[in-house]
C-alpha cells in the first residue's frame, strides 16, 4: 500500500525490524550499563521525557480541561521547551531579514500560539498512549536527535523524533519529526508559498485564522 495524501504527516508506519532492534537496543543498553554519549538520562532526554509526561497528563484530563484548559496548560510548557525564536527565524528563512524587530517579536509570539493551539486541539483525549525512548543521535554543532515512538493500543506506532539544541537555558526543541516528516522544513516550504502569494501580512493573517479554527473546531 502506497502512502497517501495526508498519510505523510502522521502516518502509520509498520513496525520494521529496525524499529524492533532500536527498541531492544534502547532497553538493553541501560541494563548492561554501557555508558552512551547520549543515553536516556542525559539532559536532552530529560527535557523530552518531561514534555511527554506533561503531555500525557493533559491528554488524560483532556475532556475535563476542554480546549481552553489544555491550551492554558500547554502554553507555558511549549514556551519554555521550544526554542521558538530560532524556529521562527529558520522557518521564515530569507524573509526573516525583511521584517523589522517588532514584526519579528510578534511573529515569534504568534507562532508560539499556533504551536500551542495545534497541540491543544490534536491531543484531545487519552486512549492508553505511551512514549518509548529509542535513544539519540548526535548531529552537527552539538545538536541532538532524540528518538521516541508514540505507541497506541490497536493502532500503528508513530515515530516522534525531536531535534534539540542547547541554548543558555538548557536543551530546547527546535523541530519535531513525525514518521520522517520534519515539521520545521515542512512549515518553511509552506510559509514560503504563502509569503510569495500573499506577503508577510498575508501569512500572519492565515496563522491567526488557523489558531481561531483550532479553537472553534475543538470541543
Amino acid at each position: 500500500m502506497k502512502p497517501t495524501e495526508s498519510h505523510r504527516y502522521i502516518t502509520r508506519i509498520w513496525k520494521t525490524r529496525l524499529h524492533g532492534l532500536l527498541l531492544a537496543t534502547s532497553l538493553i543498553i541501560p541494563l548492561s550499563g554501557i555508558a552512551q554519549d547520549a543515553g536516556v538520562n542525559d539532559p536532552a532526554h530529560q527535557v523530552i521525557t518531561g514534555f511527554h509526561g506533561q503531555l500525557l497528563g493533559v491528554m488524560r484530563e483532556a475532556k475535563t480541561l476542554g480546549y481552553q484548559g489544555r491550551y492554558d496548560k500547554l502554553h507555558p510548557l511549549i514556551t519554555s521547551l521550544f526554542d521558538t525564536p530560532t524556529i521562527a527565524k529558520v522557518i521564515l528563512s530569507r524573509y526573516w531579514k525583511e521584517i523589522n524587530d517588532q514584526e519579528k517579536e510578534e511573529f515569534i509570539k504568534l507562532f508560539n500560539e499556533l504551536s500551542t493551539a495545534t497541540y491543544a486541539s490534536r491531543f484531545d483525549g487519552y486512549n492508553g498512549e505511551t512514549f518509548v525512548d529509542l535513544g539519540s543521535e548526535e548531529l552537527n554543532k552539538g545538536r541532538l536527535l532524540v528518538k521516541t515512538e508514540l505507541q497506541q493500543p490497536g493502532d500503528d506506532p508513530v515515530r516522534m523524533d525531536y531535534l534539540m539544541q542547547q541554548n543558555k537555558e538548557g536543551w530546547r526543541i527546535i523541530s519535531v519529526i513525525a514518521d520522517g516528516v520534519n515539521d520545521l522544513s515542512l512549515k518553511r516550504a509552506e510559509y514560503a508559498v504563502i509569503i510569495r502569494e500573499k506577503g508577510f501580512a498575508g501569512l500572519v493573517e492565515e496563522i491567526r485564522k488557523k489558531i481561531k479554527e483550532n479553537e472553534t473546531g475543538a470541543d
Binding site: S6, I13, V181, N182, E190
Partner: peptide
C-alpha cells in the same frame, strides 16, 4: 484522521501535502 490532521495544521494544504509526501517517501 490523517486528513483531519492536515486540515488542522496546514495553511496551504497543497504545499503541506507535497512536502509531507516527499519527506515521507525518503523515510520509507
Amino acid at each position: 484522521d490523517e486528513t483531519n490532521i492536515r486540515d488542522e495544521a496546514a495553511l496551504d494544504p497543497y504545499a503541506f501535502t507535497r512536502e509531507a509526501y516527499l519527506q515521507q517517501r525518503e523515510f520509507l
